[in-house]
Design a protein around this nucleic acid. Structure first.
Lengths: 294, 294
DNA sequence: CCATAGTGGTGCGTTTTTTGCATCGCTCAA
DNA sequence: TTGAGCGATGCAAAAAACGCACCACTATGG
């Protein structure tokens, strides 16, 4: 869209922080770029950049404009998608920000299933904690977010939610492996491997242990749920995960035992998008599929 | 916004139905306009107009694009408003689609009150029935709608609603003028002046009279509530109106008596805007003022 | 404390894009 | 059948955008 070129230029200057650097990205001379920015500001009726001795920075007006630019671009992409839909072609691209728990089993399965029906739809999946996921939505870097116990949710519009108890994860040979359910105090007898504090599961566990007057002292704290699972699988440790991140069939060597709701009531896994936003067709259809899968 | 000129051109062609006519509105030659449309379609990846022997018409892709254009333009206006807000200037323009009932007293008073605080804000008020009001919102021809008993409401997001009983309107000298409330059957003894069938008040009255096995036979049916009031004021007839359209202080020569809720339960007056839309600052502030006034 | 590298801004000749004019081919209604 | 109205197009003129060279300014680091 050549007529929206000026928006690309503004974003390029915003990204690189200087006209000269942005000029390279834009395949244009710094002088030409400079003049287009100036002309735009003139027409817009207000400066959108602060001129600092070391470069350019968006001022508040520019921040507002930037959001408009992103909104505008995403909406145009939606229109493009719908127009493609008219001609019977199901094309498009879906950008997802999600918790790690969704990565090993759930999302790969759902994406494959979706692409079996619409092979021309492509995906971007970014692992984000619950705070960053919301920021991604605001910046239009993701269409959908699938997160466990999100943090503020002011810009988050819920499409679907599902309750997830917290599961203890351990080797199938572990003494507690046969139990129907576990109390939190049972787990404290063993080596604990816990996700880092920014994760929802950890937050729930911390709250629960505080209630029974104990403090969790993990032997291993990590930001990788893969690590949690593998450490638990090959030792006597206990890890924690939510059911959507587990697959009993795929791991007969492991045991997954729910923590009693009396200790940890569990949390909600939310599927949502940016408030007030109209999703592209592809993203909407995929969201519906996920919602029914959950 | 020079870079959005192509959008103006597309809208102009859509409005006038032909390139040559649109060329005059756009202050450009037909050939230049033609080529810009062609270039845009090329870049957009799909034709947006049907070429008919008698002119141009938007095809489905074009309809989708047109909606995007309007959305985009309105959002840019919102950004402009917010930027003006940053510099302390309260400028802007508010477009309202409303029922006739709001015209005589309510809206003039509220607009004056608002403009006393923000004199640089201007207004457009269009009288619309409840069906057309919603269309106006969809086409971005209005920011706000203030309507009685709207029809489908699928694209309508309610900001505020207030219950309005139906009032009988008559001369102060009318035999029924002193009553505290009226049954519908009391009114049927007199000459009736009714709003046309597209109005919410009429719909409620029709339903109510059908319930008591009667049919309303007005001596005067009109699409002007002014006419209803004046006819009632100068004769023995009875008209009907909702309270927001009446002002006892301004008309000591008239009497307003509520119809018993056992006959006509009344209806809701809704203030709303297009679903998912972010209103310009001025419109939002005005909407808040109206909501509290109601 | 000054040299230097990096920043945005500008004058001017050149290139690219857009526009206007004239004209073609087509369709439909009188 | 003819004329009026439509969109499309070739070509030259006008306008806009661009690249180059250079200016003024300011932090930073030897």
């Amino acid at each position: 869209m050549r007529h929206l070129r000026i928006y690309d230029m503004i974003e390029a200057v915003h990204r690189s922080g200087s006209i000269r650097k942005a000029a390279e990205d834009t395949n244009i001379t710094a002088s030409a770029l400079n003049r287009r920015i100036q002309a735009f500001e003139e027409e817009f009726g207000s400066e959108i950049f602060e001129r600092l001795p070391r470069g350019m920075r968006l001022n508040p007006a520019g921040e507002l404009l930037l959001h408009h630019i992103r909104l505008q671009r995403q909406d145009l992409a939606r229109v493009h998608g719908q127009v493609a839909d008219l001609s019977g072609i199901r094309r498009g691209h879906v950008k997802i920000a999600c918790s790690q728990a969704l990565l090993p089993y759930f999302l790969p399965r759902e994406i494959s299933k979706y692409r079996a029906e619409f092979p021309d739809v492509t995906f971007t999946v970014n692992v984000r904690d619950r705070i960053q996921a919301e920021k991604d939505l605001v910046n239009f870097e993701s269409d959908l977010a699938l997160v466990f116990e999100p943090a503020h949710m002011v810009d988050f519009e819920i499409l679907h939610s599902v309750h997830q108890p917290v599961m203890a994860v351990m080797s199938a040979a572990h003494p507690l492996a046969g139990r129907e359910s576990l109390r939190l105090r049972d787990c404290l007898e063993y080596d604990l491997v816990l996700p880092a504090s920014q994760f929802g599961v950890r937050m729930l566990l911390d709250q629960a242990s505080a209630r029974i007057g104990r403090k969790l002292e993990p032997v291993l704290e990590t930001d990788s749920f893969d690590m949690v699972r593998h450490f638990a699988a090959y030792g006597q440790g206990i890890g924690f995960q939510i059911p959507v991140g587990l697959n009993a069939l795929a791991r007969p060597d492991m045991a997954f035992v729910p923590i009693s709701a009396r200790d940890v009531s569990g949390g909600e896994l939310y599927l949502g998008h940016l408030r007030k936003r109209t999703l592209p067709v592809a993203a909407l259809k995929f969201a519906n599929q996920i919602a029914s899968a959950l």
